[in-house]
Amino acid sequence: MKKLLNILFLLIAVGLYAQNEAAFQKGNQLYNEGKYLEAIEQYQSIIDSGMHSAELYYNIANANYKLNKIAPTVYYYEKALQLAPDDADIQSNLAFAQNMTIDAIDELPEAGFSRILNNWIGKLNYNSWARVAVLFSFVFVLTFITYYFGTRANQKRYFFILSFIALTMMILSTVFAFRQKTMDTNDQPAIVFAVETQAKTDPNFTSEQVFVLHEGTKVQVLQAFGDWKKIQIANGTEGWIPAEDIKEL
C-alpha cells in the first residue's frame, strides 16, 4: 500500500512539473508577443501551485516592468535575488526598477568593522556555519588527543598549537552561526504596494504622521499589531503603516 502511495505521489509530482513547465513556456511566448498581462497570469499560476525559482520571479518582474507596475516589479526582482543573490542580470534590473520609485531615502551608514564582519558572516548561512563549527570540533578533539598522548616535545607543541587554533575556529564558527541566525530572524523586508501610505507614530489613523512612502520602496518590518505593521526605512526612521499597504518578502 505504501509503495502504491509513493508511486501515486511521484506521478502527481511529475504531472505538476509538466503542467508548470507548459505554463512557463506559454508565459514566455506571451511575453515575447507583448502580452505581458497574460504572461503574468501564466507565471502566477505556477507560483500558486507552490513552485518557485529565480528565473520564474525574474520573468514575472520583467513583465510587470513592461506594464510600468513599480511595486510588483521591485517585489519580484527582490524575490529572484533572494534565490540567486549573485545573478548580475537580476541585480542590474532591480537597480533600474528602484530608479522608478519616488522615495529617495539615504541609507543609514554602518560602521566599517561591523559592515565587514556582517559581509563576512553573510557568506555562509546559519546551517553552514554550524557545520563548520562541528568540523572544527572534530579537528580539535583529534589534535588534542594526539597532543595529550604524544611523547616527543616538538610533536606535542605542534599539536597543541593546532588544537588551540581548531578550538578558536570552533568558537568563532559557533558565534557566527548564532549571529547569522539572529540577522536572518531580524531581516523581514517588505515592499510598499500602496501608491502612497502615511507612516504614523502609533498604530492608528489619528496619530501623528512621521513620513510618507510610495509604491516600490523597500522597508523592514519590525513589529505587528492588529492590522498595522511597524516598519523601519533605510535611514533608520520608524513608523506604523496599515499592513495591507506592504507585501513582505
Rank of each mutant, 00 (worst) to 15 (best):
M1S: 14
L11N: 09
I12Q: 00
A13I: 04
L16R: 08
A22R: 13
N28C: 05
Y31Q: 05
G34N: 01
D48Y: 06
H52K: 14
L56I: 06
L56D: 06
Y58K: 13
A61N: 06
N68K: 12
P72K: 10
Y77T: 03
D86T: 14
D89C: 04
D89S: 15
I90H: 04
S92E: 10
N93T: 02
L94F: 02
D103L: 03
D106M: 13
E107A: 15
E110M: 08
A111M: 10
G112K: 08
N119W: 05
L124Y: 07
S128Q: 15
R131P: 07
F140V: 02
T143R: 05
F144E: 01
F149Y: 15
G150V: 03
N154V: 13
K156Y: 10
K156Q: 15
I161M: 05
F164Q: 11
I165S: 09
M170D: 03
V175Q: 13
F176W: 07
F178R: 09
N186C: 09
Q188E: 13
F193P: 03
D202E: 15
Q209S: 11
F211W: 07
L222E: 12
F225M: 12
G226Q: 04
D227G: 10
K230T: 06
Q232D: 05
W240T: 00
K247L: 01
L249Y: 03
